[in-house]
């Protein structure tokens, strides 16, 4: 409840509806909507922006430069989940591959991969539930199966990863380890589809590369973690996994930017602002992690330096993509230019 007309003779206590409960009942479709009341802070912020008389451009029109789209309401938990989910999926996949294709004396690595996967699946669940507007209703995610919604598909994948990795980690079930590895492949890559399957221009335009980019970033981050805390006998496996992931990560980030930049306005969030800084930083960090690998320094210092740089690089990548989406949704011209280009393309074909 808030007080409206605070400075007037008769201040009014309101939930923002201004309905006198003695006269009217709250039964409307929107009546269940919770409200704390009038949004006073909003007013001050907008009033400040009113500086000059607006003028509509005839050539490149927008509606007072107001955003076309509503921007994402996801907070830090979601890009963090892209990272954690990636580590989870890639570790489980590596664990299954080692279980199948390497010697018995790498058993310790297999077990560690499973435990990282199990812990990661639990953390992933917590992060996702924490971001919901109504966290108590998280189980509603599994009330339907809807292939058109990557988020629904992802909820099923994560459930399966959670179940299989718990059986593999706690009870050492071999079959569960393989099953967790298979679904881990999905967990590490579907987040790219989740991001791309949106109306946000920069996310939508990255669709051909982003799932593979997220997958390679997942390899890099899982490799970094295993190198730093993993069993020493498995060190070479983890390092190979990380290096191949990082090379792919750098190359695919470059490819994605090129693809997105077909429309200059769409690529802008990757090239300027905070998201642009993070995007560049992620490539620099991944490259420095690779560079450290070939430096002639002590093995212990090397693995921690490479691991920390690589982890930061993967995190920066996930946050860069998230922040770029916010910036892109705020820019109406990104959507307009992209859609005009699509229309011109269709007209030329016709």
């Amino acid at each position: 409840m808030a007080v409206r007309y605070r400075d007037s003779v008769e201040p009014v206590v309101t939930d923002g509806r201004d309905i006198d409960r003695d006269i009217g009942e709250l039964l409307g479709e929107g009546a269940q909507q919770r409200s704390r009341g009038a949004h006073d802070e909003h007013i001050a912020e907008m009033a400040e922006r009113w500086q000059a008389l607006p003028e509509a451009s005839r050539i490149d029109p927008t509606y007072y430069d107001r955003p076309l789209l509503n921007e994402s309401v996801w907070h830090w938990a979601i890009p963090t989940y892209y990272y954690v989910g990636g580590v989870t999926g890639a570790s489980l996949a590596l664990g299954a591959a080692v279980q199948l294709f390497a010697d018995r004396d790498l058993r310790a690595l297999v077990r560690q991969c499973r435990w990282i996967g199990f812990a990661g699946a639990c953390i992933s669940g917590v992060l996702l539930v924490a971001d919901l507007g109504r966290p108590m209703r998280f189980l509603n995610m599994l009330r339907v199966f809807r292939p058109t919604s990557p988020m629904n598909v992802g909820a099923w994948i994560l459930s399966k990863v959670g179940a299989a990795s718990s059986l593999a980690a706690i009870f050492d079930f071999e079959l569960a380890g393989l099953s967790a590895g298979l679904s881990g492949l999905g967990l590490a890559t579907y987040t790219g589809v989740l991001v791309a399957n949106t109306a946000v221009p920069v996310w939508q335009e990255s669709r051909r590369v982003l799932p593979i980019l997220f997958g390679s970033s997942a390899m890099a981050s899982a490799g970094c973690l295993l190198e730093m805390v993993g069993d020493q006998r498995g060190f070479a496996v983890a390092r190979t996994f990380r290096i191949s992931g990082q090379i792919a990560e750098i190359a695919l980030a470059f490819a994605m930017e090129k693809q997105v930049a077909r429309i200059e306005r769409v690529a802008r969030p990757l090239r300027s602002g905070f998201s642009g800084f993070l995007w560049r930083a992620s490539a620099v960090l991944a490259a420095s992690s690779l560079l450290v690998t070939v430096l002639p320094i002590k093995k212990r210092a090397k693995k921690f330096a490479a691991g920390i740089l690589g982890t930061l690089g993967s995190l920066a990548l996930r946050f860069a993509v998230d922040k770029a989406g916010l910036a892109s949704a705020r820019d109406p011209r990104a959507s307009f230019h992209l859609q005009r280009a699509q229309l011109n393309f269709t007209n030329m074909g016709a």
């Binding site: 409307g28 007013i43 009113w50």
Partner: peptide
């Protein structure tokens, strides 16, 4: 629909 307000603004638009 008995919707609450979402801020009273003076935008100049």
């Amino acid at each position: 629909n008995q919707l609450p307000d979402d801020g009273f603004l003076f935008t100049g638009m």
